[in-house]
Design a protein around this nucleic acid. Structure first.
Lengths: 214, 214
DNA sequence: TAGATTGTTAATCGATTAACAATC
DNA sequence: TAGATTGTTAATCGATTAACAATC
């Protein structure tokens, strides 16, 4: 079993490798990765070792890691392999931004539906992605085999939205609202809530700033 | 020193207490908090005990915690006490949503500036919050004693934006872009990046779903 | 007082760091 | 070969859980 902190680091490492690859790099050492990411080289190596596999399969020459094969290994180990369908519920301003968001990397995720409770909104929005009224969520999630969802509805509608998604068999939710979503433990939820991030930052700088050491 | 996992849980607890208070509740036990938050009651008690203070100061009667005083204790311990100034850099669609966002609780955070590199955008937007061109970031952050910032600029402008903020003395950044921001270690950064959250969810359900136990 | 709940000390568990042998 | 880097085992550290005394 891979520990959660490791999963987080590996996800962030994947992102980093993506960037390095775009910059044209093909190789890098664990020490180089440390200097960019801040994660200690031995932690990176340890994390990678937890992926198991078959012995010292990662290295190529003594020059470090080959970025493309390292990405492949992560893809394999973390299950980024097959394309996952996703949807957005709540097409207010925030939802529209996400809908048009070009960052949905086609290799990994595909946005296959948008939902809103307001029929007017649905008619006004012209999108390449099919849009549906919110009461169809459960059925469409089933029909289109949607695994991931973004919730960007008003606070008061968040739980109802989640319930519909869950009923349809959704597996993961990114929650952009301030609501704390009640959910079964086999449904994973990530909350992206600015105020909470501000609070966390406040605590960090309050607790760590004055006491640089110890 | 309070461990980081504890800080996270306490932030989330604060949010939760806020909600309970709005529902009209005044008291709750650690067990009740467990059932809502999923955090074990003994962990909640342990976390609270780490706040130090003076002995068993939290409880009131045997009925559990008084929500308002518990909130006060958290406010005190985590440094939510005095109002912090914040700004938003990048007033595209995402930035505009955040600018209008009513969730900036006046007690804790005050949005005192918006920045954009496009002068047209600045003129078109009518906002109660003063708006400035991006090259003024460093000076305005100093002048207005801004401690926290949200970055919602295009990917390519993220690092420049961060550099300007940091030069002005910013203490915490919430980064809505896909960029990995380079920063000194006394500046705290939180990345809110949907794709990375999707990847994390993918890994979780890939690694934990099939193996319910062990 | 008896029952329930908290706050805290002790025990367990797991993640991080260190050390080093294996590999290029 | 010598130097550098990886992969892995062992040691340390810290967080979580358990147990229980103190408190209401």
């Amino acid at each position: 079993m891979i520990p959660e902190p490791t999963i987080k680091r590996l996800c962030s490492l994947f992102h980093l490798l993506d960037d390095l690859e775009k910059e044209g790099l093909t190789c890098c050492t664990s020490r180089e990765l440390e200097s960019i990411s801040g994660i200690p080289a031995y932690t990176i190596r340890k994390d990678l070792s937890l992926l198991g596999g078959s012995g010292p399969r990662i290295k190529s020459r003594s020059a470090g890691y080959e970025i493309s094969s390292l990405k492949e290994i992560l893809t394999e180990a973390l299950g980024f392999g097959e394309l996952k369908n996703a949807c957005i519920v709540g097409l207010g301003k925030m939802g529209q931004v996400l809908l048009q968001y070009s960052g949905f990397i086609p290799d990994e995720f595909r946005l296959v539906a948008g939902f809103d409770s307001d029929v007017n909104t649905l008619e006004l929005l012209r999108s390449e992605i099919p849009l549906y009224p919110s009461y169809e969520i459960t059925d469409r999630v089933k029909e289109k085999k949607i695994e991931l969802a973004i919730i960007s509805v008003p606070l008061s509608a968040a739980q109802l939205t989640a319930d519909r998604l869950i009923k349809g068999g959704i597996k993961g939710i990114v929650n952009f609202t301030a609501a704390r979503i009640q959910h079964p433990e086999d449904v994973f939820v990530r909350n992206l809530y600015v105020i909470e991030e501000f609070r966390f930052l406040s605590s960090q700088l309050y607790l760590k700033e004055d006491t640089p050491k110890e």
